[in-house]
Simulated assay, not measured.
Amino acid sequence: MSAPAEGVRLQKVLAGAGLGSRRACEDLISAGRVSVDGEVVRELGTRVDPTAAVIHVDGLRLQLDPGVVTLALNKPRGVHSTMHDDRGRPALAELVADRPERLFHVGRLDADTEGLLLLTNDGELAHRLAHPSYEVPKTYVARVTGRVARGLGRRLKDGIELDDGPARVDRFTILEQGPDSAVVELVLHEGRNRIVRRLLDAAGHPVQRLTRTRVGPVLLGQLRPGATRVIDGEELGRLMSSVGL
């Protein structure tokens, strides 16, 4: 790698990204845990352009542009997955009105579905997360009508034919079983419109309530409905790595 004559010392950039003191960051560099533009860097005098360099630590990408932000949002039921709705219905912009960035949503959740939705102004990250070739897994928890038979998981993994082609899940778990309803968890990586609802309906178990709890490595956790949190540090690095950034 040809280091720029002008620039910022790599250990200073790492320290500014929250990876510890400059001495600790020097140790990261000396140990060969840092790469710049795809090449491992061990020289402590290396200078980089933080606005252009692609830096990874332990294989995880650092986001060095302070103007780029990615948020986790717990979308409430009744809110539409659009920043502004031309029919005046509740929309996402109302939930992030305090943010200065011009954000856009990654994928969609139908109005009746709640849970994790990602918002960002990182165009490349958003594009890759939404692109089917990267097969980012998404986890949903659903309360469904009816008692779930043991064979349902295998049936869903094998695939069920819908009106726009077959759909299947990667994993299926029964979390609770009642006399006339059940709570199930599904993991799948495709994002066709209302795919989880249509899949469970076709299997004979209409959805009563649906929540998305995970996108790739990002968890909904205890985030309250309507609230957001910034995805940064290692969590952001794992999210970016999941789509090859």
Score class of each variant (00 low, 15 high):
M1R: 14
A3H: 11
G7H: 06
R9D: 13
L10Q: 10
V13D: 08
V13M: 08
L14M: 01
A15P: 03
G16E: 06
G18H: 01
E26P: 07
L28S: 05
A31G: 12
G32I: 07
G32N: 07
S35M: 09
L44C: 12
T46D: 12
T46S: 10
V48K: 03
T51E: 15
T51V: 15
A52V: 13
V54F: 14
I55G: 00
V57M: 03
G59F: 05
Q63W: 12
V68M: 13
T70P: 01
A72I: 08
N74F: 02
G78K: 03
V79W: 00
M83R: 04
D85G: 06
G88M: 03
G88C: 03
E94S: 09
L95C: 05
L95R: 02
E101W: 14
F104M: 08
H105M: 05
V106F: 07
G107D: 06
L109M: 02
D110N: 09
A111E: 10
G115C: 02
T120D: 02
G123E: 06
L125N: 02
R128I: 11
P132C: 10
Y134W: 04
E135Y: 14
V136L: 14
P137Y: 08
P137E: 12
R143C: 10
G151C: 09
L152G: 07
R154I: 14
R155L: 07
D164R: 00
G165I: 08
P166T: 01
R168N: 13
V169W: 04
L175S: 09
L175E: 05
Q177L: 13
S181Y: 13
V187F: 02
G191V: 05
R192V: 00
R194F: 02
V196S: 01
L200K: 00
L200N: 00
A203G: 08
R212W: 01
V215R: 08
V215S: 08
V215N: 08
G216M: 05
G216C: 06
V218P: 03
L219S: 15
L219I: 15
G226M: 00
A227T: 13
V230W: 10
L236W: 03
L236A: 05
G237W: 00
R238N: 12
R238K: 11
M240G: 09
S241V: 15
S241H: 14
G244I: 14
